Amino acid sequence: MTGACILMLGQHQFGSFTWGGSQASVFYLANAASGPAFARLIDRFGQRLTARLMAVFFAASGSLEIALAALRSPLWATAGACLLMGITLPNAGALARARWESEVKSAGLMRTALAVEATCDELTFMLGPLIVIALNSCVGWHAGLSAICISTLSGTWMLTRQAVTRPTPAPPTSVPTKTVLRDRRTLALLASLFLLGCSFSASEIGFLARAQDLGSPSLTGVLLALWAAGSATSGILLGARSFRRGPPMRYAWASRYTAVCATPLVLADSPWALAAAALLAGTAAAPVLIFGFECACELTPQSQRHEGLSWVTGSLTLGSMAGAAVSGCVTDAAGPHAPFIVAAACAAATALAAQVMGLDP
């Protein structure tokens, strides 16, 4: 949602989606690169202090970005503001999931909690861009980012006020000096999630390209809604089930299911077939993400929980960026079916990475 706002601001300021996209890329890269470092600070000093300071600086950086856009400042200045926004944006997903993990001790209830979080994420991804576009269209070009700054600041403040579920900061002696990346299976998980992010973003570009190819650009919104609906439904159903296998094995099987469900998108040759394939592909999204976060909780120690979750979201973000860049080039070169081929290949590589690199015990 924030990236879409930055893109719209860039288009307003420079009259070019290319420049807007470059600023959004700066934001995403900064957020993915700085997330783990700030997560270590949260593990050490707690959510209340660190997350609130980050939210304040994020709101200030967002206000600076709006002011620079209004003044038609040069690209380097607005890119610097986007850099600050990316660095200081609190990782709300990691903050919430860490609270669940510290409060819920049962593995079954933890999976249900992660399913609830995944469903909320899907609703956010569905409604967020629509709200931003509506605000920018009805109020002004600055309204979307202003609303994001206000909601980030107020939401972070409200979350960190919940003292009952707040994770206890680790004492200095219990915070390991080594990063979680020293663990082989954690690296395997992050590599697999990077490829998963590539697959998801390639599918999204494929929906746009195929809808335009079929002569109905508005079909893109329907396809994305079906994809999100399938994901939310599978997440709800998954949260009510119990499993004998551990999170690594479940993640390995979920990644294989993702690879299978990505294949029909390549073969769909009509709007109805594409809609059915989008719904099927969506059913694979929530399970693989839920089990991926479960793996992160199992593979990282309690004192590094925020750092581990931050690496998960960072890997997905970087994968989405890479997948979007590759899919855009492939679409121009090979046609509207090409992004789905990229998505299927990345999904297969996700399953392969989970097995070959040690997540499949």
Rank of each mutant, 00 (worst) to 15 (best):
F291E: 14
D332P: 01
A285V: 14
A333G: 06
A284L: 06
G314R: 08
P248K: 07
A348L: 12
V260R: 04
A285I: 14
P336M: 04
A344Q: 01
G328H: 13
V356G: 05
I290W: 04
A354F: 01
C261K: 08
A232I: 07
A284H: 05
A240I: 11
A322G: 14
I236P: 01
W311M: 05
A225Y: 02
S270R: 03
V356L: 13
D269K: 07
G246P: 08
A277F: 02
L274K: 12
I236N: 00
A345W: 10
L299S: 14
F340R: 00
A240S: 13
L274D: 03
M249L: 07
A345C: 15
A296L: 10
L219T: 02
A333F: 05
A348C: 12
V356P: 02
V330H: 03
A334V: 07
R305V: 08
L226Q: 01
T313R: 07
S218T: 09
A345S: 15
I290Y: 00
E307V: 14
F243K: 10
T331A: 09
P287S: 12
Y251A: 09
P301N: 11
L318W: 10
G235I: 09
R305A: 12
R305W: 04
L265F: 11
H306A: 15
R245S: 12
L274Q: 09
A348M: 08
A338S: 15
G314H: 07
Q302R: 13
I290N: 02
T317M: 13
A273S: 14
L274E: 07
R244V: 10
V260K: 04
Y251H: 12
S255R: 04
T300C: 15
G221L: 00
E294F: 02
A285R: 10
G230E: 01
L224H: 03
G221W: 05
S320L: 11
T283R: 05
P339W: 07
C295T: 10
L274H: 09
F243C: 07
S270P: 00
V260G: 04
D360P: 01
T331F: 03
P264G: 12
S231M: 03
G323Y: 01
R250M: 08
A322Y: 01
A284W: 04
T300R: 13
D269M: 09
F340P: 03
C329H: 15
G282D: 00
A286L: 03
Y251W: 12
S327D: 08
G239L: 13
E298C: 10
A285E: 10
L318D: 05
P247I: 04
G358F: 01
L223N: 09
S270D: 04
S303Y: 06
